[in-house]
């Protein structure tokens, strides 16, 4: 039984088809990477799963429950959390306050939410910054904050959009380690990632998108050598 099931999802913007008949399943506890060149439709797919976009065709289900057509907040309450590619911290709130907003989706008790938020902030390594305003954080710290905030909603499925994008090289290993730990703790993850080294280090399965379609789905080494994938990234001249 799969946790996430995407079936025949198509999304058009005017004349452009951003997602075309995308189908795949994610089993509980799996960590699946999503790759593809710019404009492949990766982010659109995330927006659809998280309820921000409504597809013209197809269905998204979480544990058999239909998500398509539900508002993003309902989707979150059903167990799907996400981060944003372009980071969106609550700049005027403290780090703890940011994470509490997530925790308050699952508990009505503010004190309880504060305790939970403190634990999660420590888990992502931001405990020294707990009372700092989010606007004072560096990009790497903001990525951790987004992750912490999403985790606080106690998701069954976590969508990560470019965890290592825009972060300086030295902080990447720590972020990768964090993702590994989340996976090890049993969380199901769907990860968009540009950095091939990062993605192959954390996952056993990659889905490659190109021009809105799934062109490959399998283990990293197979996908990386796939003719269609190489063509999509480098052009026909590089395929033998």
């Amino acid at each position: 039984m799969s946790l996430l099931s995407v079936a025949g999802v198509t999304k058009r913007f005017g004349g452009i088809t951003a997602n075309r008949g995308i189908s795949f399943d994610v089993a509980p506890g799996e960590l699946v990477g999503i790759i593809g060149p710019n404009g492949a439709g990766k982010s659109t797919l995330f927006e659809i799963i998280s309820g921000f976009y409504r597809p013209e065709e197809g269905d998204v289900r979480l544990d058999g429950v239909r998500l398509t057509g539900l508002s993003p907040d309902r989707v979150c309450r059903l167990g799907v959390a996400r981060t944003f590619q372009k980071l969106r911290p609550f700049a005027g709130l403290t780090v703890l306050g940011n994470v509490m907003v997530g925790a308050l989706t699952r508990t009505k008790d503010v004190r309880h939410a504060r305790e939970q938020a403190r634990e999660i902030v420590a888990r992502v390594g931001l405990e020294d910054k707990a009372d700092a305003h989010a606007r004072t954080l560096s990009t790497g710290q903001r990525k951790r904050l987004e992750l912490a905030r999403a985790l606080a909603t106690r998701p069954r499925l976590l969508l990560l959009d470019e965890v290592t994008g825009g972060v300086d090289q030295r902080t990447i290993p720590a972020l990768v380690q964090l993702v590994r730990e989340l996976h090890a703790s049993g969380l199901t993850l769907l990860v968009i990632e540009h950095n091939m080294r990062v993605i192959t280090a954390v996952t056993q399965r990659i889905i490659a998108l190109h021009l809105g379609e799934v062109i490959a789905d399998g283990p990293p080494d197979v996908v990386a050598r796939d003719r269609a994938v190489v063509e999509a990234y480098l052009g026909q001249a590089y395929t033998r």
Partner: peptide, 15 residues
């Protein structure tokens, strides 16, 4: 406060 700071982010967190 979350809605004030960033409505989409608030939505994504179940608000």
């Amino acid at each position: 406060a979350a809605v004030r700071e960033d409505e989409d982010a608030a939505l994504s967190l179940g608000v």
